[in-house]
């Protein structure tokens, strides 16, 4: 047996792959569910916080900054473990799934709030003044003039962050969630062969590469001539 054969036998073992493919697919479904929930909830919450912050109430802003900095500073895994083991609801069904969803949502909320906020503050003051001088209210100016421009600016950093945090779904394997990595790990333990991990890696590529490409497409589509 050559080294090459041994390599293939270890990482691309067709028999093992066939046996564990259904598990990995099932795991992929869970990953998609968590990722989808995290992206939608995290971005919406982040945008909501950034909008609240733009109102400019000092105590509220201090609170927002505190929460955002907290979730930006803590490693996502620490938050997941903390919620999973620390909160009194830990008997609830699918608690690992919920803990991961909440944790990553808070992390994405925190990072996206900062990005949305940076986008909002980067819009020149003259845009606000022009709109307000024609009688538009604060809210109308924010929604019709500032936000559309800010969102375009935020798309590249937002896409990067979203992908980076969404990949953290793999952390759910630590709290016994049967997503891709969790399924692959138990398959490796049962079969003594790492081929399921190869499948997991390929699975992640299939899931996240389109997200990267989608981000790129959004970026070009949203650009306008200055």
């Amino acid at each position: 047996m050559t080294n090459w054969d041994r390599f293939l036998e270890t990482f691309f073992n067709a028999k093992m792959m066939a046996r564990y493919l259904p598990d990995i697919l099932q795991g992929a479904l869970v990953t998609i569910q968590i990722a989808g929930l995290v992206i939608v909830c995290g971005l919406l919450l982040g945008l909501a916080l950034a909008l609240l912050r733009s109102i400019g109430l000092r105590p509220l802003n201090l609170l927002i900054v505190f929460v955002v900095d907290l979730f930006r500073a803590l490693p996502p895994l620490v938050i997941i473990v903390f919620i999973y083991f620390g909160l009194p609801a830990s008997g609830v069904k699918n608690w690992g799934f919920i803990a991961t969803w909440l944790s990553l949502t808070f992390v994405l909320m925190a990072f996206s709030e900062e990005i949305f906020w940076a986008g909002i503050t980067s819009i020149p003051k003259g845009q606000w003044e022009a709109a307000r001088s024609t009688g538009l209210s604060f809210g109308q100016t924010l929604i019709n003039v500032v936000l559309p421009q800010a969102l375009r600016l935020t798309i590249p950093p937002l896409t990067n962050r979203t992908i980076a945090i969404t990949k953290g779904t793999a952390l759910a394997s630590v709290v016994a969630v049967g997503e891709i990595l969790g399924m692959a790990s138990s398959a490796v333990s049962n079969s003594y062969n790492p081929s399921p991990l190869t499948m997991a890696a390929i699975g992640y590529l299939i899931l996240f590469l389109p997200l990267v490409v989608f981000g790129r497409w959004l970026e070009t589509r949203m650009a306008w001539k200055r």
Binding site: E129, A130, A131, W224, R226
Partner: peptide, 15 residues
Amino acid sequence: RQRVGMVFQSFNLYP
């Protein structure tokens, strides 16, 4: 403010 039109040095059109 609708009664007071304003024109700025830097135009401030919505791009």
